[in-house]
Simulated assay, not measured.
Amino acid sequence: MFSAEGWTKSFRSQPNGNQCVEWNDAGSAVGLRDSNHPDGPVLAMDATQWAAFQDAVLSRTVNQ
């Protein structure tokens, strides 16, 4: 579903490698993964879910 070259690392990812996240917009779905484990699980969501996730992160309402 997600192409290998379509992953983009967050500009907020830490340089020491502890907190790295990447996303991949495949059109019908967006994937989110830990860039330290690219062969690991991918959280897939549709555009509405991705927008809600971004809003929650930007408003800091995601539980930490």
Rank of each mutant, 00 (worst) to 15 (best):
24 N>L: 05
21 V>C: 07
61 T>A: 03
57 V>S: 11
21 V>S: 03
46 D>Q: 05
29 A>K: 08
49 Q>G: 06
48 T>M: 02
42 V>A: 11
49 Q>M: 00
64 Q>G: 13
24 N>P: 03
64 Q>I: 07
35 S>N: 07
49 Q>Y: 00
43 L>S: 03
2 F>L: 13
2 F>S: 01
3 S>G: 15
21 V>L: 13
58 L>Y: 01
48 T>Y: 02
54 Q>Y: 05
17 G>C: 12
9 K>P: 02
1 M>D: 08
60 R>L: 01
4 A>E: 14
10 S>C: 10
31 G>R: 00
47 A>C: 06
12 R>M: 14
42 V>T: 14
36 N>D: 12
56 A>D: 13
11 F>W: 10
18 N>A: 12
12 R>A: 15
40 G>C: 03
6 G>R: 12
31 G>D: 01
36 N>I: 05
38 P>Y: 02
36 N>S: 12
40 G>Q: 06
11 F>N: 13
61 T>K: 12
12 R>H: 15
62 V>N: 01
37 H>R: 08
43 L>H: 01
56 A>S: 15
15 P>D: 00
3 S>K: 14
26 A>P: 10
56 A>F: 08
35 S>A: 13
37 H>M: 07
50 W>E: 04
16 N>I: 03
4 A>Q: 14
8 T>N: 05
22 E>Y: 03
24 N>C: 15
54 Q>I: 13
11 F>L: 13
58 L>Q: 10
37 H>Q: 11
15 P>A: 07
63 N>W: 04
60 R>W: 02
44 A>K: 10
5 E>R: 12
59 S>M: 11
29 A>N: 08
38 P>S: 04
57 V>F: 08
34 D>P: 07
30 V>D: 01
47 A>Y: 02
29 A>C: 08
44 A>E: 11
42 V>C: 12
59 S>R: 15
34 D>M: 06
16 N>F: 11
62 V>I: 11
32 L>Y: 04
41 P>S: 10
23 W>S: 01
28 S>N: 11
34 D>C: 05
1 M>A: 12
34 D>G: 09
58 L>F: 00
33 R>T: 04
63 N>M: 03
8 T>Q: 14
38 P>F: 04
42 V>F: 09
53 F>S: 09
43 L>E: 05
37 H>V: 08
39 D>L: 09
37 H>L: 09
8 T>S: 09
35 S>F: 01
23 W>R: 00
22 E>Q: 13
35 S>W: 02
22 E>S: 04
27 G>R: 00
62 V>C: 02
20 C>V: 07
40 G>S: 08
27 G>I: 05
55 D>S: 14
60 R>P: 00
27 G>M: 07
6 G>Y: 02
64 Q>C: 09
45 M>K: 07
31 G>N: 04
46 D>E: 09
4 A>F: 09
13 S>E: 04
21 V>Y: 02
28 S>K: 11
7 W>K: 04
32 L>A: 07
41 P>K: 03
23 W>L: 06
30 V>M: 07
16 N>C: 04
45 M>T: 14
25 D>G: 00
56 A>N: 13
3 S>C: 10
10 S>K: 03
40 G>W: 06
34 D>A: 10
32 L>N: 00
20 C>F: 03
15 P>S: 09
17 G>D: 12
30 V>S: 01
7 W>P: 01
20 C>H: 05
30 V>T: 12
9 K>W: 00
44 A>P: 06
61 T>L: 02
50 W>Q: 03
52 A>N: 14
5 E>S: 15
23 W>I: 08
18 N>C: 08
